[in-house]
C-alpha cells in the first residue's frame, strides 16, 4: 500500500520544533503511582531530527469503514444503539504554527456511559453495554477537521489512592506527518469537577496546559433533539522550513 499524502500540498521535510517538556507531564509524577517504576531516571539524549523522525506513516481515507466514526452504532446490534448521553466531538488538528494538519489519523477509545471499559482487565462492577465497544477512528480533512459521534463516558474508580476517580475522558491517539509528532492524550469535559482531583490530569504542571485538554460544550454544533456537541482541537508539533535545513551534497 503506497503512502497517500491526504493533501495536494507539497510535502514538508523540515525538522520539528523542539518539544517543551516543561509543558508536558514529567515522566515521574509520584501521585500517579504507576509512574514511579516506569519513569526513566537518566536524562534523555537530545537529538535534532533526522529523516527517521521527520518521516512518518500516512494513512489514506480508504482504510476507514462507514461506522468507524460512530461509536453509538459501530458495535451495536442491528437497529439498536449504545445507551448514554449522545454527543458529537469535533474539532481540528493543527500544528504549532496554527496550520491545519490534513490526513492525520485519529484513534479514540473510552469507557461506556457507566464508566466500564470493554476489556478483560476492567473489573469495575458497573455493567457493560452490549451495544457499545468503545473504539473509533477518523482521518482529518484538508483543513485538519474531524468529527465523531459517541456517548459521554462515565467517571470510574481506579486503584491509585484509596478513593481516586478518573474524570470522564476520551483517549486520543494522533499521527501527524512525521513520527516525532506521534502523540497520545486524553480529552476531558467542560465543567467536570473531577479533573482537578485527578493525579493523571494534574501530572501536567501548568493549569493552563490542563485547560487545553478540556473540550468546550458547543451548543451551535448541537443537533436539536439528537446529540449535544463538544469542540476539541489538538495541536501537534510545528516544523521548521526546509530552507533552514542543511542541504546534502548535490541536493
Amino acid at each position: 500500500m503506497p503512502a497517500e499524502s491526504g493533501s495536494n500540498r507539497k510535502p514538508e521535510t523540515g525538522a520539528f520544533f523542539q518539544r517543551d517538556r516543561t509543558w508536558h507531564p514529567p515522566a515521574l509524577t509520584p501521585n500517579y503511582k504507576t509512574s514511579v517504576l516506569r519513569s526513566p531516571q537518566k536524562a534523555l539524549l537530545a537529538l535534532d531530527n533526522t529523516l527517521s523522525e521527520i518521516a512518518g506513516p500516512v494513512f489514506g481515507h480508504a482504510m476507514l469503514g462507514e461506522l468507524d466514526g460512530d461509536l453509538i452504532h459501530n458495535f451495536a446490534r442491528p437497529g439498536e444503539s449504545a445507551i448514554g448521553e449522545r454527543i458529537i466531538i469535533h474539532g481540528r488538528v493543527l500544528d504549532e504554527r496554527g496550520v491545519g494538519v490534513p490526513g492525520a489519523l485519529l484513534e479514540f477509545w473510552q469507557a461506556n456511559a457507566g464508566g466500564r471499559y470493554r476489556h478483560k482487565k476492567d473489573g469495575y462492577l458497573a455493567p457493560l453495554d452490549p451495544n457499545f465497544g468503545g473504539c473509533g477512528r477518523a482521518i482529518t480533512s484538508e483543513d485538519g477537521g474531524y468529527a465523531f459521534r459517541t456517548v459521554k463516558p462515565g467517571p470510574y474508580p481506579w486503584p491509585n489512592g484509596p478513593n481516586d476517580w478518573r474524570p470522564s475522558h476520551i483517549h486520543f491517539s494522533v499521527f501527524g506527518h512525521g513520527f516525532a509528532q506521534r502523540l497520545i492524550t486524553q480529552m476531558y469535559f467542560e465543567g467536570d469537577p473531577l479533573i482537578w482531583h485527578c493525579p493523571i490530569a494534574r501530572g501536567i504542571p501548568d493549569k493552563a496546559a490542563i485547560e487545553t485538554l478540556i473540550a468546550a460544550l458547543d451548543m451551535q454544533s448541537t443537533i436539536p433533539f439528537d446529540a449535544r456537541a463538544y469542540k476539541f482541537d489538538i495541536v501537534l508539533r510545528g516544523r521548521r522550513s526546509s530552507l533552514f535545513e542543511n542541504r546534502l551534497e548535490g541536493n
Binding site: 507531564p25 504549532e96 471499559y117 493523571i200 501537534l236 508539533r237
Partner: peptide, 12 residues
C-alpha cells in the same frame, strides 16, 4: 500555539 500536552495511554 502550544503542543497539546501528552497523557498516559492507560491500561486499556
Amino acid at each position: 500555539l502550544r503542543e497539546s500536552p501528552s497523557q498516559t495511554a492507560g491500561p486499556y
